Amino acid sequence: MQNRSFISNRSAVQYNPLMKEWIGMYKFRGHERYAPLLTALLIQAFQAMREEQNSALAKEPPAPVAHIATPAQQTKPQWRPDAVTYVPVSGERLAERGFNQAERLAAGLATACRLPIVDLLQRQINTTKQSFKSRGERIETMKNAFSISPDGMQLIEELYRASHLPTHMGISHAKSIQLLLIDDIYTTGSTLDACGRVILNAGFYMGIPVELYTLTLARS
């Protein structure tokens, strides 16, 4: 994918026949007993994602600081998103299923990992079933499917302020807010990319730099 809106995606499992059955039982038939298992798989993938990002951070040169750190202060950098968000479903799908599986997965992950969860997006149109479409058709369908939620910009601004609290020396280091976007299945990445573009555009409009990472339950 050229110029995708997210930095990287990690998926917990392959979308094989067994996972297709499990996710289908949960998503379409409302079998709640699958929720803890699927959430646990996502949490495991998130932990692997953190380790990968921490390794990448450890290889980067340290950022300039206002004072010389003592050995006790020279701790390894730890990657941690500022908040978790999720791909929304349409009102019709919500009425049909009774819940948004991506939101449930995001909430389970956020609770387990003590991360804030924010409702940033809304689905403008009820897209038809994606599984029968070609890659090009999926990308075209998703172009205008999402918009920022009514409180989305305010939430982004609040996250930015929280991540830029002054240090004990009264200095705030400029940095992007890092968001983790959750969905259940990654096929072409067009849904996540469309969602990401809406979030990045909202941040750009407010002059707030945003870095987006995506985490999905299964990779098709």
Results as ranks from 00 to 15, higher is better:
residue 59 K to F: 01
residue 204 F to V: 09
residue 6 F to T: 08
residue 91 G to Q: 11
residue 177 I to K: 00
residue 14 Q to A: 14
residue 83 A to I: 08
residue 57 L to G: 06
residue 4 R to K: 09
residue 84 V to S: 05
residue 143 K to P: 06
residue 184 D to M: 07
residue 219 R to F: 11
residue 18 L to Q: 14
residue 167 T to H: 05
residue 142 M to I: 11
residue 195 C to E: 15
residue 196 G to N: 11
residue 14 Q to E: 12
residue 89 V to C: 14
residue 131 S to N: 06
residue 1 M to L: 07
residue 189 G to H: 09
residue 52 E to H: 09
residue 87 V to I: 10
residue 42 L to V: 13
residue 66 A to M: 00
residue 188 T to Y: 04
residue 112 A to D: 15
residue 194 A to R: 06
residue 165 L to V: 11
residue 97 R to Y: 02
residue 107 A to Y: 02
residue 66 A to C: 11
residue 150 P to D: 06
residue 60 E to N: 04
residue 64 P to G: 12
residue 177 I to L: 14
residue 169 M to H: 09
residue 196 G to R: 08
residue 2 Q to G: 03
residue 2 Q to E: 12
residue 79 W to M: 00
residue 147 S to L: 13
residue 201 N to C: 08
residue 160 Y to S: 13
residue 187 T to M: 07
residue 147 S to P: 03
residue 72 A to N: 04
residue 131 S to A: 14
residue 68 I to D: 10
residue 60 E to L: 13
residue 156 I to P: 06
residue 53 Q to T: 00
residue 102 A to I: 13
residue 84 V to E: 00
residue 170 G to T: 06
residue 130 Q to C: 09
residue 203 G to A: 07
residue 176 S to R: 07
residue 125 I to E: 15
residue 203 G to T: 03
residue 81 P to H: 04
residue 165 L to R: 08
residue 12 A to W: 07
residue 203 G to N: 08
residue 81 P to W: 04
residue 185 I to M: 05
residue 46 F to W: 12
residue 18 L to F: 15
residue 102 A to Q: 13
residue 210 V to Q: 06
residue 3 N to L: 00
residue 77 P to C: 01
residue 198 V to M: 10
residue 123 R to P: 02
residue 63 A to E: 14
residue 208 I to E: 07
residue 170 G to L: 06
residue 5 S to K: 00
residue 215 L to V: 14
residue 77 P to W: 02
residue 3 N to T: 04
residue 155 L to N: 03
residue 7 I to L: 04
residue 205 Y to Q: 15
residue 104 R to C: 10
residue 187 T to G: 07
residue 28 F to K: 01
residue 132 F to P: 01
residue 23 I to L: 15
residue 71 P to N: 11
residue 112 A to K: 13
residue 102 A to N: 12
residue 51 E to L: 11
residue 218 A to Q: 07
residue 176 S to L: 05
residue 74 Q to V: 13
residue 85 T to R: 02
residue 128 T to P: 01
residue 192 L to T: 13
residue 138 R to A: 00
residue 184 D to E: 11
residue 66 A to I: 03
residue 124 Q to M: 12
residue 186 Y to G: 06
residue 77 P to E: 06
residue 4 R to F: 08
residue 1 M to W: 00
residue 141 T to A: 12
residue 177 I to S: 02
residue 147 S to A: 14
residue 157 E to C: 02
residue 194 A to N: 08
residue 82 D to Y: 01
residue 106 A to N: 08
residue 119 D to G: 03
residue 4 R to D: 09
residue 84 V to C: 00
residue 110 A to G: 05
residue 82 D to K: 00
residue 132 F to N: 05
residue 219 R to T: 11
residue 68 I to T: 14
residue 146 F to Y: 15
residue 17 P to V: 10
residue 139 I to K: 04
residue 38 L to V: 11
residue 71 P to T: 15
residue 84 V to R: 01
residue 155 L to D: 10
residue 132 F to E: 09
residue 91 G to E: 14
residue 139 I to Y: 02
residue 176 S to V: 01
residue 1 M to A: 10
residue 180 L to S: 03
residue 70 T to Q: 14
residue 162 A to L: 09
residue 211 E to R: 15
residue 181 L to S: 08
residue 8 S to G: 05
residue 6 F to Q: 05
residue 12 A to S: 15
residue 92 E to I: 01
residue 84 V to P: 03
residue 185 I to D: 09
residue 172 S to I: 04
residue 98 G to C: 02
residue 66 A to E: 13
residue 52 E to L: 07
residue 216 T to C: 12
residue 76 K to E: 14
residue 36 P to N: 07
residue 118 V to K: 14
residue 50 R to I: 04
residue 96 E to I: 00
residue 210 V to T: 03
residue 114 R to M: 06
